[in-house]
């Protein structure tokens, strides 16, 4: 088992190198550089030259990449931000990643909490009113994009009812273990709307997947066997059927986890949350090369880890799966 994990992780290193180099090279291939222009105007060539020299952008790309890789391996340094002068990508990720983790984990938890029971109920009461309403809610949840749901919730709960603040994130530093905030009222009051916005869409897809998968599993022979042996219905469903039917759910949870925890641009934008998602988008517009490569690498690492954890979970969910 340990050998398997180590091997998987070692195999992923070339992936990271290839990925970062591709990002590195692709970004530089896009027309326009980080310093050609300031705001609404262009900059003289001499000024651009000074700035490029300062950040070594005047060197050949292999040399730039080598420098970046060396700093990363030797000093765990992702390089300087080109847009926020005097700050490093480590600083930027360090302050925004914990926020995205907080939001992401809560949204994911909400999604599972709503999605799995809803999907299970729908499957057990197939073609009943419960099923139809759950399916209807799921379709609504999937179809309403966050950029509609977010402002809608703000309009109802912040402007209309005046129960919750419109935006911003209420977590106070320092965080426990680097990401757990103090569970203050302020934190939760700011978190309710964004978590709900982000979580409902996810819960809808989880519910649909759970329903489909469970419907298939409860028709399997071993479920009939379990019932025939006289096991209680709830034990049959939860211990035998649900556990097995969660395999597809777990499969999508891996990439979903990596994507949600590294931040979501739209929700962060609407609620003014200082998370990491916006850097995936704005750093490209700014041509902030080190920041783009940095956040891409973090996403990739998380994706690899999440998928590894998914594979580990298979072994527990499905007794036939073994890793050597």
């Amino acid at each position: 088992m340990t050998r398997y994990i180590v091997r998987r992780l070692l195999f992923s290193i070339p992936v990271f190198v290839a990925l970062t180099f591709a990002t590195f090279a692709l970004m530089r291939a896009i027309p326009g550089g980080p310093f050609d222009f300031a705001g609404e105007r262009g900059l003289p060539a001499s000024i651009v030259q000074n700035m490029e020299r300062k950040y070594h952008l005047d060197e050949p790309i292999w040399k730039q990449y080598g420098r970046w890789l060396w700093d990363l391996v030797a000093h765990a340094d992702l390089g300087p931000s080109l847009r926020q002068r005097g700050r490093s990508v480590n600083d930027i990720v360090g302050e925004s990643f914990p926020i995205s983790i907080q939001l992401g984990l809560m949204a994911l938890a909400l999604a599972l909490l709503i999605g799995i029971p809803a999907g299970t109920l729908a499957a057990l009461k197939q073609n009943s009113i419960v099923d139809y309403s759950s399916t209807f809610m799921a379709i609504v949840g999937v179809s309403i994009p966050n950029m509609v749901l977010g402002p809608l919730l703000i309009w109802i709960f912040a402007l209309g009812l005046n129960w919750l603040p419109v935006s911003l994130w209420g977590a106070e530093r320092p965080f426990l273990l680097g990401f757990l905030p103090k569970p203050t009222l302020k934190f939760f009051s700011h978190a309710v709307l964004p978590v709900f916005t982000l979580g409902t869409g996810l819960s809808a897809s989880i519910a649909r997947l759970t329903r489909a998968s469970l419907l298939q599993v409860i028709r399997e022979d071993y479920i009939r066997t379990a019932r025939a042996k006289g096991l209680g219905e709830w034990i049959v469903i939860i211990r035998h059927a649900l556990k097995n039917s969660l395999i597809p759910v777990v499969t999508i949870l891996g990439p979903m986890f990596a994507a949600i925890v590294t931040g979501t641009f739209v929700v962060e934008q609407i609620f003014g949350i200082p998370g990491m998602g916006k850097h995936f988008v704005t750093s490209i517009g700014n041509r902030d090369y080190p920041l783009i490569v940095g956040v891409t690498l973090i996403y990739a690492v998380l994706l690899v880890i999440a998928n590894l954890m998914v594979d580990m979970t298979y072994a527990w969910l499905d007794p036939r799966v073994r890793y050597q």
Binding site: L112, F188, V192
Partner: peptide, 21 residues
């Protein structure tokens, strides 16, 4: 454990919400 603790915190949020603003 992680999920449950998050769920708990998330749940704890709901009833207290009213007096926040």
């Amino acid at each position: 454990g992680v999920i449950v603790s998050l769920l708990l915190t998330a749940c704890a949020a709901a009833p207290e919400v009213v007096q926040v603003e």
